[in-house]
Structures are given as C-alpha cells and as structure tokens.
Design a protein around this nucleic acid. Sequence first.
DNA 1: AGGCAGGTTCTTA
DNA 2: TAAGAACCTGCC
Length: 287
Amino acid sequence: MILTIRDDFDLARIADSGQCFRFNVCDDQKEISGERGESSGSPTYRAVAGDKLLYIRQTGGSEYELSCSEDEYETFWREYFDLDLDYSGIRERIDKSKDPYLFAASEYGKGIRILRQDPWEMLISFIISQRKNIPAIKASIEKLCALAGDKIGEEDDGSAVYSFPTPQRLSRLSMSELAGCSLGYRDKYVHQAAMDVASGAVNLDDWKALPDSRLMEMLLGLYGVGVKVANCEILFGYHRLDAFPRDVWINRVLDTRYPDGFLFDKYAPYNGVMQQYLFFYSRAGQL
DNA sequence: AGGCAGGTTCTTA
DNA sequence: TAAGAACCTGCC
C-alpha cells in the first residue's frame, strides 16, 4: 500500500536510534511490490515486531510504500509508528537560543519517533542490552528468534525471518540453548524473566494500568533489571514518553553540556523524546 | 594482550 | 547506604 506521512518520519534515523533492534535497512535494492521496476534512490527497511513483518520504503517526499495491507496498517503499523502524535510540535518546544545543544540535536535527529513496541519484547531486549554494543544486542536477539520464534517470512536470499519468541517458548529454552545465543551472564536474567511472565506471576499487560512510580518499582523487582533497563522499558515498552533512560552516552552529555541541569520541567511530558535526540546526536560523535 | 561495550548483582565496610 | 569487584562475549 501507499501511505502519506507529513510529520517527522525518517526510516534511517529510526532504524539507527537504538530503541529497536529488529528494524534494519535491507542490503540490496529490495523490491516491495514485486514488480521489477527501477526502484530509484531510497533503500527498503525491514521491521519485525512480535510476529509482524513489514517492508517499507520512502518513494517520494512524504510518500511511502508498505508491504502490508491497509487493514494491517490500520490495526497495527499505524500505532506502531506512533503516527497520531505530532513530533514536529514536540520539537518546537525547544528554544534555539536557550537550549542550543538540544536544538541542534533535535535538528540532527528530526524524523525519530518513539515506536510503540511490545512490553515483553522490549523487556527481554533491554535485559540483553546491558554492557553490550548494538550489533551484539541484535545478534543475540536474532539467535533467540531463530531458536524459539516461528518463521514468518523469507528473504530474497532464502534465509528465514522469525517472530520474537513468546514467553512460553522462551521459558522452555534450556540454559545451554540460551548460552548459545551469546547472552553471557544475562542468560539467567532472560530465563527468569521468561519464567515469570510465562507462569503469569508477572503480567506485563496489567502493569499498563500502574502509575509511573509503581511501574518502576515492579520492573526493578525483576531479576536483571536495574534503573537504566527499567527506564528503557518504561519509555519504549510502555510508551511513557517522559521516561529518561540514562546510559553512558546520556550521562556524558549531561556532564559536559548540562552542568547546571537539564530542563526536565520544561520538556515534560516529553523528556523521553528529548533523550532520544540527545542519544542519537551524541552517539554520532556530536558532543 | 588488555580494555571496553546502552548495567546489574553481589560483596564488603 | 555506598563504593568496588565480578560478570559473559565479541571486537578492536
């Protein structure tokens, strides 16, 4: 299907923003419609979320070609891309003269959106993320999916695409199988989280109703979840846009650029969006 | 070869 | 309550 998106929306920046680990650019000139028309310019991206698979490509200024049906777009991907929230309006809250660094970061990261990803998938992904770089995180997640997910598609080269494992499937993996996914010392965290969710002892959907402070408490009660991972889960898994995960990059920015403090009050309830701009900008070497 | 990567847990004072 | 060490693995 063809879609028009006028608000901030940049596939390359979203894919590289660090909030998602199964949203990648396709190597060669992947065709979406199947016709072998000359696909000029912009590359195709592949997004995998839960058991959904999407190919998407920018075809014009604000026009995009998606591999899904209009029905699947309306029931899933529209919400996934958070297309009902006005990100350019959020950017306009930044005062160029009063906060020049964030302004520059927001210009650099224009087009980033906070995807509405699944709490379960985000929990496992960010437990795995601790003390790993992004390629290593992605590699571990793909191994888990291949081991405990279902085949949901096939690439042009014949390789299979797998869904993210359900809690039940993941909880049934042995420790040696988990070790085979290069999880390192995180294997026990992943196993315990899968057991907790699969058994029903933890119900991540019920937690959607909790106030921020209670949600944070519950997350910190999980084995292998500390403050940073909990904040990532709150921002990316529960889409609470004021959460502000502090990792090494963000701490570096706060230390060097905001010695007198970041304007959290000013940017509420969208501090998490600002965090994404800062993270993306600093990680690109702009410090 | 040693250090480090989107941290958290465990141990010790 | 607060530092400091230990932790898997892969890649400079």
